[in-house]
């Protein structure tokens, strides 16, 4: 089985979120970038588990500039066999998805596994877009996936529960918690990652359909109003009369 895992590069959760150029640009000053957590913890590791159980190949693909190499090497250190970097500034999901789908079309893949939304723009776009560009089956928010004889069974989140569906491959899966157990790269993996193939692909220049005109940050930090442990009735009063939420 040949599996493609698109990975995204995002600011670390603890990064300070600030904007420059009159609030039109995210400030990358002192920001540490990491692989999007659900791409790493669930999508990539599920692909590796499938390969270990059934044989095959795990390829990661990333849309980004040269400074993404560290994130891509980490995916190789965790266990991916090879990597592609599409050389582009990844600002629009459609433009990214067209490039990934172009690669997937000719790559002979059985599965594309993405994480769920990235932790920066929280958008959940690439999985669905790639699926439509390839005209493949797709299932999102998958917490369990079994594959046997070209047939897949997946359990996905729905409102207030889960649903189990069956479908044939090729398919796109968007992973969520519990799909696989996260892995930490070991020394052998880190050493091997340096020599695994990382191929740079030129972008075809697909149209960018969206842009961000400006950002806005909350005007001030919240001020916590403390209530005494001996006066819990006051909390109930505040929630009713002041906050009006009960």
């Amino acid at each position: 089985m040949k599996i493609l895992v698109p990975i995204s590069k995002v600011p670390d959760t603890t990064s300070k979120i600030a904007f420059v150029d009159n609030n039109t640009k995210f400030s990358t000053d002192n920001v540490q970038f990491i692989m999007n957590p659900t791409d790493e913890w669930y999508a990539l590791t599920k692909a590796l588990e499938l390969k270990e159980a059934q044989g095959g190949e795990v390829v990661v693909i990333h849309a980004g500039l040269a400074d993404s190499e560290q994130v891509i090497r980490k995916a190789l250190a965790i266990g991916a066999d090879s990597a592609f970097r599409i050389d582009m500034d990844p600002t629009d999901a459609y433009a990214i998805s067209v490039e990934i789908a172009n690669h997937a079309k000719t790559g002979g893949y059985d599965l594309v596994i993405t994480g769920k939304e990235t932790i920066d723009y929280n958008s959940f776009e690439v999985g669905g877009m790639v699926a439509e560009l390839l005209d493949w089956n797709a299932v999102a928010l998958v917490s369990k996936l079994d594959i046997a004889g070209g047939k897949a069974t997946a359990t996905r989140d729905i409102e207030g529960g889960t649903e189990t569906v069956e479908f044939s491959l090729p398919a796109v899966i968007c992973a969520t918690k519990d799909l696989a157990a996260a892995r930490i790269p070991n020394m052998k993996g880190i050493m091997a990652s340096r020599t695994k193939p990382l191929t740079v692909l030129a972008a075809t220049g697909a149209d960018k359909l969206t842009s961000i005109a400006s950002y806005q940050t909350p005007e001030k930090a919240k001020e916590c109003k403390y209530v005494s442990v001996d006066n819990v009735a006051e909390l109930v009063r505040l929630l009713h009369e002041e906050a009006k939420v009960i």
Binding site: F124, V126, V139, L209
Partner: peptide, 24 residues
């Protein structure tokens, strides 16, 4: 809606229409 179904459906609809998409 940007719910469990919409998160997968909306980007598919956008691609079919070649329309720019804003999620959430």
């Amino acid at each position: 809606s940007f719910g469990p179904n919409g998160k997968l459906l909306a980007p598919r609809v956008a691609v079919r229409l070649k329309a720019g998409y804003v999620p959430g």
